[in-house]
């Protein structure tokens, strides 16, 4: 949950990028890191295997600016996507303020998306969270590839509640900041309601 510090006048929020293995979560964070001014970002930490698959998490701290005199910091995390890293995924969801689900638009990843979304719901429930009540946005990634499902099809399947949804190509950066902004907006609006 968010950390509001009246002493240093800071708000800290935790955002987790979730999704099936290789959907582009780490790529989202890398793009944000590359495009963020030096003074607004901390070090990006990737706990990865030798083949660059996320082992535990990626972490990117961002200090975007001030709201009402409070420095607003977002801590972005990704989870490891592979099925067998479920224990790690649960840990990273602790204290989450907002979730981005990165879907892999490729047809052959259709089932993997569903499985990962179900897994997200289960793991949140275990922590006492309800996905329906949490700031939540969906990014349909890899729109540049030829073998993708239509956004309509993906949306019907993954987004019955019609939370904010965005098309993305994390490799070129398309939709990446739009996605971050969408989830940040929901998180800050939650804060406004005193959540």
């Amino acid at each position: 949950m968010s950390f509001i510090n009246y002493a240093s006048r800071e708000i800290n929020c935790k955002i987790v990028y979730y999704g099936p293995g290789l959907c582009g979560k780490t790529t989202n964070l890398q793009y944000i890191y590359q495009k963020t001014a030096e003074e607004s970002k901390g070090k990006m930490i990737s706990l990865a295997t030798e083949t660059e698959r996320t082992l535990f998490f990626d972490f990117l701290p961002l200090a975007l600016g001030e709201i009402r005199g409070f420095k607003t910091r977002f801590h972005l995390y990704t989870v490891p996507g592979q099925v067998f890293y479920d224990a790690s995924r649960k840990l990273i969801l602790k204290g989450v303020d907002g979730v981005v689900f990165v879907a892999d638009s490729q047809e052959e990843r259709f089932d993997a998306n569903i499985e990962s979304l179900e897994n997200l719901k289960d793991n949140l429930e275990e922590q006492g969270f309800d996905l329906e009540k949490l700031p939540f946005v969906i990014q349909y990634n890899k729109r540049d590839l030829p073998n993708v499902s239509s956004v309509e099809e993906l949306s019907n399947l993954l987004n019955p509640r019609k939370v904010p949804e965005l098309e993305g190509c994390a490799m070129s950066g398309e939709g990446v900041f739009e996605t971050l902004k969408a989830v940040a907006k929901l998180v800050l609006n939650d804060l406004k309601k005193g959540g």
């Binding site: 949950m1 968010s2 509001i4 009246y6 602790k94």
Partner: peptide
């Protein structure tokens, strides 16, 4: 674990 942490000046000091 679910509640937001809030820090005030006095406790911070």
């Amino acid at each position: 674990p679910q509640s937001s942490l809030v820090m005030y000046d006095e406790e911070y000091q």
